[in-house]
Design a protein around this nucleic acid. Structure first.
Length: 468
RNA sequence: GGCGCCUUGACGGAGUGGUUACGUGGAAGUCUGCAAAACUUUUUACACCGGUUCGAAUCCGGUAGGUGCCUCCA
């Protein structure tokens, strides 16, 4: 029984899918630069959610959008490709960072082949048709500089604007709103379509015979793309906590205006932000890192994944190089647990109840993704078998267990390889040397293995190798 | 000003009315031919002040500190 915290109700709810196939929409990146490790943490949690749903037996469809048209994209593309036309500059920039984005998320164990990507610029027609519908039905109005969504009209339709947070729309005087820049009726109305400015990419958009050439607003992109791929309503919408307002609130409004049901997504799952040395990640503090910073320090991206998994998605996780090193050590330990699979014994200790451990792990992960607890269960289990090892007749069960862990955590524990026959020969020779008390020879052989990063520990069960 | 969230040991980080979470690091010990690994112990745990209760880190109230959102930032 999977339990999830739903931002709509602000409560932990029992997950019940709308239909057999669970439909998930994950707010993806704006591809104007490398994604930073905070973005990555968000995608790792979304990936984790999908994995847990699968383990719970659901078939899933997970869509991730790629925002390749917005203010930042335009600005950056002009900087990077000043010679190109606005359209080409935009396409070049998007192509470059879409590729690096996919590499990055793949490195941190996110399964690319499980994600159904959709690009904003490929869905302009869907956005336009949604905007046209909103205009025709009176939920949007055409102003001098763009087409805006009318919150007043939405509320008159007996819909609540503020489903994800309590909003005091009347009292916005405290919020610093620069209303002069836009030609909209009220402060909270937001742009669905922005009319073309010089030197900006634009798409033709005809309503009632008139061309409103321009580009989509940010929020409409996700409404159109989610509807295109998943329909409405769908099961789960994920994203960072900052997207709650206005982005997701606006998505709900656009997508449900005029519909009989106010339901857009049944569950909204939001992850907290990653802190760097307990401080907010920001350019002014110079603490915005991306994956290349990790790779330069020769740190395994999967150690970063483990660092993220160690803390709960609804808590602010902390990142520091020291913590990453700690996570890296823990990952190594987990791998050395996994290689015990190659070192089962004919007569090891007592029978291990893999089913029980598996059930405990599943139960923890189903409890609003409590991976910290999963890892604790795993550590205890690891301590249990480290000395006694696993009996040969349970080798297959061990394999299944490791596969389950990989499906859940994505740390590729099952992908470790056995040592080769030469290395086994060294272990055998060392055994002989030890039996004849030839310690010099024994130590030489141990050093030799160490050269290929294989360590040896001498236990009552004989020599056990591990990865250094 | 409005609406939220958080505060656990050296450092991270779960838990949640009575029981060792767990990890990383430091120290000591056991084991060992020596190591390594493992194991054991240790390194003032639950921000502060009240209240409820037989009992509170856990529930309630207040205080302090941190933090998020209130128009485009995962």
């Amino acid at each position: 029984m999977l339990k999830l915290y739903n931002s709509l109700s602000r409560k932990i709810e029992i997950f019940k899918p709308i239909d057999k196939e669970v439909k998930i929409y994950t707010c993806g990146p704006t591809v104007y630069d490398h994604v930073h490790i905070g973005n990555l943490s968000s995608f790792i949690y979304a990936d984790l959610l999908a994995r847990i749903l699968e383990i719970d037996g659901y078939k899933i469809k997970q869509v991730m959008n790629i925002t390749d048209i917005d203010d930042k994209m335009i600005l950056r593309s002009k900087e990077e490709y000043p010679e190109e036309s606005p359209e080409n500059a935009l396409a070049n920039l998007a192509k470059l960072y879409e590729t690096t984005f996919k590499q990055d998320i793949s490195s941190v164990g996110i399964r690319l082949n499980k994600l159904d990507f959709i690009k904003a610029t490929d869905s302009i027609l869907q956005m336009q048709s949604l905007i046209t519908k909103l205009v025709k039905n009176g939920f949007a109005y055409i102003a001098d500089d763009g087409i805006y969504f009318s919150i007043e009209a939405y509320q008159k339709d007996k819909k609540k604007y503020g489903q994800l947070l309590e909003l005091d729309i009347q009292n916005t005087s405290k919020a610093r709103i620069n209303n002069d820049e836009y030609d909209k009726h009220t402060a909270h109305d937001f742009a669905l379509w922005k009319f073309m400015k010089p030197n900006e990419p634009a798409w033709s958009f005809e309503i009632d015979g008139k061309d409103y050439i321009g580009r989509p607003g940010w929020h409409i992109e996700c409404s159109a793309m989610s509807n295109e791929k998943l329909g409405i309503p769908f099961d789960i919408h994920t994203g960072g906590i900052d997207l709650i307002f206005p982005h997701h609130e606006n998505e709900i409004a656009q997508s449900t205006a005029g519909n009989s049901s106010p339901l857009y997504a049944k569950y909204f799952i939001h992850n907290e932000h990653l802190l760097i040395d307990k401080r907010k990640m920001s350019k002014s503090l110079g603490n915005v890192y991306n994956l290349t910073d990790l790779e330069e320090k020769k740190l395994d991206p999967l150690a970063f994944r483990l660092l993220i998994l160690q803390s709960h998605y609804r808590n602010q996780a902390n990142f520091s190089w020291e913590l990453l090193k700690a996570a890296s050590n823990r990952l190594k330990d987990l791998k050395n647990f996994a290689v015990l699979y190659y070192q089962t014994k004919p007569t090891a200790g007592s029978e291990i109840n893999f089913t029980k451990i598996t059930d405990e792990i599943k139960e923890a992960s189903f409890d609003d993704l409590n991976i910290a607890k999963v890892l604790a269960i795993l550590s205890n289990f690891q301590n249990l078998i480290q000395d006694e090892l696993v009996n040969d007749n349970q080798k297959e069960e061990f394999k299944i267990f490791l596969n389950m862990l990989d499906n859940l955590l994505g740390l590729t524990l099952g992908k470790t390889t056995d040592i080769n026959s030469e290395q086994y020969k060294i272990i055998l020779d060392r055994d002989i040397a030890r039996k004849s008390n030839d310690w010099k020879r024994s130590d030489e052989l141990r050093d030799e293995l160490l050269k290929s990063n294989i360590g040896i520990r001498d236990t009552t069960q004989g020599q056990i190798w591990f990865l250094v």
